[in-house]
Amino acid sequence: MEPINFSANAVTSEEELREIVGTPHEHVIKKNVSLIDDQCKRFIEMSPLFFLSSSNAEGKCDVSPKGDFPSGVHVLNNKQLVIPDRPGNKRVDSIINILSNPHVGLLFLIPGLGEVLRINGRATIIKDPEILSSLSLKGKPPLLGIGVDVEECFIHCPRALYQSKVWNTDSWPDKADLPSSLEIFHAALRHNGVKLKK
């Protein structure tokens, strides 16, 4: 299929957008808060998985899954939290983005729960030994942390997770039918000119 020119028939203003989708209910607008209250803190402490979105100064975006033990993300107070940067593949895409653009979005999930918690704020890469020691895993503190000054926090409706049946094991595909991550990885290397040993 030939590439499509999406801009030929695009929505280009909020006014046009509202004509199509309408206006949200007052309660939907006013559910946003600019702090981590007790309910949001409890949600974060029970979440073993979240997604961190970031972009660089040019606007190029990245979303990175982050898995940890529940309460791995440390809530410092009602305006700040800290994310440990656990050892990984050393790409550090999110951290590099944050160095040029501090705006981040977080999406926290709890297994079996349809609602997700969304947090937006400004991030800073920190190396404070005292804070990092409080994020230790098996006695080892992370080398770096991502401190987030929370600007917006709200619960998101369960429609997407319920519709996708992501927590319903009966709807999961057979593992034999799943795409192979190794095959995808090797194909990407070949696309980029890397010769793999047979």
Rank of each mutant, 00 (worst) to 15 (best):
M1P: 06
E2N: 15
E2R: 15
P3N: 09
A8C: 08
A8L: 14
N9A: 15
V11C: 10
V11S: 05
S13R: 09
E14V: 13
L17C: 07
R18Y: 15
E19A: 15
I20H: 04
T23F: 08
T23K: 04
H27C: 10
V28I: 12
N32I: 14
S34Y: 07
L35I: 14
D37H: 08
Q39E: 14
E45S: 06
E45P: 03
M46H: 13
S47D: 07
P48H: 05
F50M: 10
F51A: 05
L52W: 06
S53I: 08
S53N: 03
E58V: 07
E58N: 12
G59F: 12
K60I: 14
V63T: 08
S64N: 11
K66E: 12
P70Q: 05
S71L: 06
S71E: 07
H74L: 14
N77H: 09
K79T: 12
K79Y: 11
Q80A: 11
I83G: 03
G88R: 08
K90W: 12
R91F: 14
V92E: 10
D93A: 12
L99C: 14
L106K: 07
L107H: 11
P111H: 07
P111Y: 09
G112K: 05
G114S: 10
G114A: 10
E115K: 07
V116D: 04
L117C: 02
N120W: 03
G121S: 03
A123I: 05
T124E: 13
D128L: 04
D128T: 02
E130Q: 01
L132T: 02
L132W: 00
L135I: 02
L135N: 00
S136Q: 01
L137T: 01
L137Q: 00
K138W: 07
K138Q: 01
P141D: 00
L144R: 05
G145D: 01
I146T: 00
V148R: 02
V148D: 01
V150S: 00
E151T: 02
E152G: 00
C157Y: 05
P158D: 06
Y162H: 05
Y162S: 00
Q163F: 10
S164L: 06
K165D: 07
A176P: 01
L178P: 06
S181T: 10
E183P: 05
H186E: 15
H186Q: 15
H186P: 00
A188P: 06
L189D: 04
H191N: 14
K195W: 08
K198L: 13
